[in-house]
Design a protein around this nucleic acid. Structure first.
Length: 479
RNA sequence: GGCCCGUUGGUCAAACGGCUAAGACACGGCCCUUUCACGGCUGAGAUAAGGGUUCGAUUCCCUUACGGGUCACCA
C-alpha cells in the first residue's frame, strides 16, 4: 500500500510549486489506490504564520486534493501536526546516542561562529564528541543547554532517486547534523525521517532542492535501522526570468489565482504538466481532469530539468476547461457577470451563456462580450468599412435602409426567418449577403467583435430594438 | 568556493543509439463566401560548444561554457 504525504510548513500561502508537489504526491498514491496524507511541519515556532494552516486546507480542498489522513481528518498515525508529536523525537535520538551514533553537544552559538570566522571551518569540529561520559553527564546534570548531533561516519552515501537516478556523495561533505535543537524540538530533517517512518510513508516526493540533503536522510534511516522510502525529487519551477518560483519572489498564491478566475481543474491540469508529460495513448493530449490524471500519471515521465511557469499557456488551459464545462455549470458561473452586464428584461441568459462559453479565457470575460445588449455603444463610421466584405459607409447606408424596410414586415422573428429575409433583401437590393450581414451586425452591436452573428443578435434584441438600432445606424451614416 | 543536478525552437516538452528531431502554447499566413472567436490547414523556429565510443549519436563517455540547487539549532 502506497502512502504518500504532503508535508508543508505553515509559513504562508501555497504557490504553484507547492501545489505541484501536493498533486504529484496525491497522484502517486491514488494511482495505486494508496493513501494521501497531510502533515504540518511546524517545528520552527519562529516562522509560524497565523492562519497559514487554514490556507493550506482551503487550497487543497478547492483544488480537489482531498487527503485521507491529516490534522482535521484523523487517521491511525496521528497526530498530523509535528508540534503535537514532540515526544516522539527524543527516544530515537537517545537511542542513537546510546549506540554511539549520535552525541550531546554543548557548544554555544558564539563558539561555533568564532570557529567559522577565525579558522574558516565550515563543519562542526566535533569538539563535544571528544567529551568523556562523565563530562557529558555532569553537564546534563547541571542543566547546560544541549543539542544532539548525529556522528557522520566516513565513506560515501548513495541512494537511487526515482527521477534523478543514482546519487552519491562523499560523507566528508556532510557535517555532524543536529537532530534535536536546544529548545528540545527536532530539526526538520530529523522530524521528517522520524515521522515518515512512524507514518509508514512509502514515497517521499519533494523539490530537487532537497536532493543534496537526501544522503543525510539515508544516513539516518541506516543508523536507525529503518526501511527507506522511495525518493522522488521534482525539478525546480522558475519564473520567465530564470528565478526560482518562491514566496520570497512574490509568486502567485493559488487561492488568489482561483479568485482571479482560474478554474481549479485548470490549475491542477497545468501544474501536472509542469515537469511531467503524458505518454502512450495520451501523449498527444494536454487537457486532463484530476480523475484522468489519477489513472495515467507515472513517475517515469517526470522531467529532470527545471520548467518555467508560462501564464499564457496557463490561460489557454483555463479556456479549454471552460469550453469543457457542461452548459448548465458554465451558465451558473457566468450568470452573476451576465446579470451585471445585461439588465434589459427578457434577454435569455442561458443563450448568452451558450454563445460566450467558447470565447472566454476567464468566465468573468463574458460580461464585456455582451455589454452592447443593454446600450448601443457610440461607434465610428469606419466600423462599416471592411475590405474583404466589400463594405463602406455608402454600401452600409444602402444595406441598412433595405433591411429596415424588409425587417419591418417580418412576423416570424427567428434566426432562420431573418436569414432568409436577409438573403432575399440582398438579392433584390443587388448586394452580397456578406455586405448586409456585416453592416447589420455593426449597426446592432456598435462593436468590431461580437460573440455571435447579425441574425442571432437581432433575435436577442427583439424586433423593436433591432429596428431602432438600424434607424440609429442610418442616422449616423447620414450625418 | 566544495559538492550535487541540469542544458532539445521564445515557453512547455516527445524521441530512453537508427528514417527528412513529434506535439502544445505564443507568433505569421490561408480557409471556414457573418468580423472576432471556435475549428481546420499551413509557415518560421531547437538538440549549448568541442572531443571521443559506434556502421550510426539528442540519446553513452570526457572536457569546457552556461544555468540552478545545496553547504543553518530554516523548513
Amino acid at each position: 500500500m502506497i502512502r504518500s504525504r504532503f508535508a508543508p510548513s505553515p509559513t504562508g500561502y501555497m504557490t504553484i510549486g507547492n501545489l505541484r508537489s501536493a498533486l504529484y504526491e496525491y497522484l502517486i498514491a491514488k494511482k495505486d489506490g494508496g493513501v494521501f496524507i497531510l502533515r504540518l511541519e511546524d517545528t520552527d515556532q519562529a516562522r509560524y504564520v497565523e492562519g497559514a494552516a487554514q490556507v493550506i486546507y482551503d487550497t487543497l480542498h478547492r483544488t480537489g486534493l482531498h487527503f485521507d489522513e491529516g490534522p482535521n481528518t484523523g487517521g491511525n498515525y496521528g497526530p498530523y501536526i509535528q508540534s503535537q508529536r514532540k515526544d516522539s523525537y527524543m527516544p530515537p535520538a537517545r537511542k542513537l546516542v546510546e549506540e554511539g551514533k549520535a552525541y550531546y553537544c554543548f557548544c554555544e552559538k558564539e563558539r561555533l561562529d568564532t570557529l567559522a570566522d577565525e579558522r574558516g571551518l565550515k563543519k562542526y569540529d566535533r569538539f563535544c564528541h571528544k567529551l568523556s561520559k562523565d563530562e557529558v553527564q555532569a553537564k546534563l546534570n547541571s542543566g547546560v543547554p544541549y543539542v544532539i548531533r548525529q556522528f557522520i561516519p566516513d565513506g560515501r552515501t548513495a541512494f537511487t532517486d526515482r527521477v534523478y537516478g543514482e546519487i552519491s556523495i562523499d560523507n566528508g561533505e556532510l557535517e555532524d547534523q543536529i537532530l534535536i535543537k536546544s529548545d528540545g524540538m527536532p530539526t526538520y530533517n530529523f522530524a521528517n525521517v522520524v515521522d515518515d517512518n512512524a507514518m509508514a510513508i512509502t514515497h517521499v516526493v519533494r523539490g530537487s532542492e532537497y536532493l543534496t540533503s537526501t544522503p543525510k536522510y539515508v544516513l539516518l534511516y541506516d543508523a536507525l535501522g529503518w526501511d527507506k522510502p522511495v525518493f522522488v525529487h521534482l525539478p525546480l519551477l522558475q519564473n520567465a526570468d530564470g528565478t526560482k518560483i518562491s514566496k520570497r519572489h512574490g509568486a502567485a498564491s493559488i487561492l488568489e489565482m482561483l479568485d482571479e478566475g482560474y478554474l481549479p481543474q485548470a490549475v491542477i491540469n497545468y501544474a501536472a504538466l509542469l515537469g511531467w508529460s503524458p505518454s502512450g495513448e495520451y501523449a498527444e493530449r494536454e487537457i486532463f481532469t484530476l480523475d484522468e490524471l489519477e489513472k495515467i500519471f507515472d513517475t517515469s515521465h517526470i522531467s529532470k530539468s527545471p520548467s518555467t511557469f508560462d501564464p499564457k499557456k496557463m490561460t489557454w488551459v483555463n479556456a479549454e476547461h471552460i469550453k469543457a464545462l457542461p452548459l448548465d455549470v458554465y451558465a451558473e458561473m457566468a450568470l452573476p457577470y451576465l446579470q451585471t452586464a445585461v439588465k434589459t428584461a427578457g434577454i435569455d441568459m442561458k443563450e448568452l451563456a451558450r454563445i460566450t462559453r467558447s470565447r472566454v479565457s476567464f468566465v468573468k470575460e463574458c460580461a464585456e462580450l455582451v455589454d452592447f445588449i443593454d446600450t448601443l455603444p457610440s461607434y465610428e463610421i469606419d466600423l462599416y468599412t471592411h475590405k474583404k466584405m466589400k463594405t463602406d459607409p455608402a454600401v452600409a447606408l444602402q444595406a441598412l435602409r433595405a433591411v429596415q424596410e424588409t425587417f419591418a414586415g417580418v412576423t416570424e422573428w427567428t434566426g432562420e426567418g431573418l436569414q432568409s429575409v436577409i438573403a432575399q433583401t440582398a438579392e433584390s437590393a443587388g448586394l452580397a449577403k456578406g455586405q448586409i450581414l456585416w453592416t447589420v451586425r455593426t449597426a446592432l452591436s456598435g462593436k468590431p467583435t461580437t460573440p455571435c452573428g447579425a441574425t442571432e443578435i437581432a433575435v436577442l434584441l427583439g424586433k423593436e430594438e433591432t429596428l431602432r438600432r438600424l434607424q440609429k445606424g442610418i442616422e449616423l451614416l447620414h450625418a
